[in-house]
Design a protein around this nucleic acid. Structure first.
Lengths: 144, 144
DNA sequence: CGTACACCCTTGAAATTCTCAAGCATTTCC
DNA sequence: GGAAATGCTTGAGAATTTCAAGGGTGTACG
């Protein structure tokens, strides 16, 4: 569909973009005393969506469920999340953020929004970018 | 400079973009019998650039030099890279890819180029995207 | 010159993260 | 009701990572 060398350049750009964002996040994670894997799970729990079973979180993170179990325990110990039984299936545990957890998550989101190199673009440019990325991702109507 | 909610959406898109690319890579890494951290170091060694001191690789990966030392040993055992003394400074060791290492690295690059969602865009769209990303990253003349 | 200091890499020990293999509880299918 | 399947947890072990210590090399200063 397109020239592969150009695609390679774009891939590189996306990689460095992600890299810079992560570099920024590292600082905040230190101040919050959060380790990367734990923060990763925290980020994965979407407060707006239905509570997610641990199994599902493990799939999305490409790791063993037992690993999620450990991280979930750490989040609970920090008071950032809670395990809740699934309303219909007694086997399933879901992970839900506490108020404190949502605040931390919002703080991370805030930081990413303000510190991302993408924030340097004008609104018009951002809209263009959004459209291009939506097309690439196959989500022409994108939800946040 | 721009509406923060829109920026947030963009950040999310970049994250999922990176996620999908990594998901694709995981398959290849399995077939190459490469683990993620080792592949990460392999990727970081740019064959086109001057040989990089281990110290510098550690900084770029935000990890301890001893960690790089271990990964470098693994790459050497696999015949993918070699340690070379620095021509001017006897303390420094640099890491250089072997021919086999370069082939593996090229294969990874190839995969990313063809499997990335960005490959779905037309050449014109890719050029637009390239321009926007260059501006965001502050590299108006970008090198691959 | 030579001594002190700084820098770079390596090694060993310990902590964290991750996977694998049971094991228990609950659901589903007959 | 009972067998099989699913979901989470626990324990053991491997892999990754960091920290602390040490040896080798370069640099500055007397």
């Amino acid at each position: 569909m397109a020239d592969t060398q150009l695609t390679g350049t774009l891939v590189d750009q996306v990689v460095t973009l992600a890299q810079r964002t992560l570099d920024d996040l590292r600082d905040i994670l230190r101040t919050l005393d959060l380790t990367e894997p734990v923060a990763n799970l925290l980020w994965l729990v979407d407060p707006a969506a239905d509570p997610a079973p641990l199994r599902q979180l493990a799939e999305r993170l490409h790791c063993d469920p037992s690993n999620i179990s450990l991280m979930a325990t750490k989040l609970e110990e920090r008071g950032l999340a809670e395990r809740r039984p699934h309303p219909r299936d007694g086997r399933v545990r879901t992970l839900v953020l506490t108020d404190a957890g949502e605040r931390v998550r919002a703080r991370l989101a805030d930081r990413m929004e303000t510190a991302s190199p993408l924030a340097a673009l004008s609104t018009t440019e951002q809209r263009q970018l959004h459209q291009l990325l939506s097309k690439a991702l196959g989500t022409h109507r994108s939800g946040r």
